[in-house]
């Protein structure tokens, strides 16, 4: 997981999204422990409050949970929940952006469909 300070996305959201990606990719399986706030803060050289804010979003969403005195763990069902959430966002983040660029380049719907077909086959 990579933090890009120059990105337009605030650091705490990059932490949230980076962890989501890692959970989806199986880096942190369900019921396994994720790094601590201190580990995140020192690794990326960010204020611990920023790391906490990013991870708290996942706690609130029920993706990770705290075990008192032990640390934070990935919840059972987290992968499924994340997939569902990401699918809902897919249209806005990818489809809309793609169609905007297609319009700028004057790519026709037919051409776009062909490209999609080509992509699927790969």
């Amino acid at each position: 997981m990579k933090i890009r300070p120059e990105s337009e996305i605030p650091i705490f959201l990059q932490i949230t999204q980076g962890l989501e990606d890692a959970i989806l990719a199986g880096v942190y399986p369900e019921e396994s422990q994720i790094p601590s706030i201190t580990e995140f803060a020192t690794t990326y050289k960010i204020n611990p409050a920023t790391a906490l804010k990013g991870i708290n979003l996942l706690v609130e969403a029920g993706i990770v949970y705290k075990k008192r005195g032990l640390g934070m763990f990935v919840a059972t069902g987290a992968v499924e929940a994340l997939r569902k959430k990401r699918k809902e966002q897919f249209y806005d983040t990818y489809v809309v952006a793609m169609l905007e660029e297609a319009e700028r380049l004057q790519i026709t719907p037919e051409e776009l469909r062909e490209m999609m077909e080509r992509g699927w086959k790969k």
């Binding site: 201190t38 020192t42 050289k45 204020n47 611990p48």
Partner: peptide, 16 residues
Amino acid sequence: RDLFYKILIEKYSETP
């Protein structure tokens, strides 16, 4: 500099 920021955050995380 990198080491300094790392130690600083470690230290701060333990006892703000």
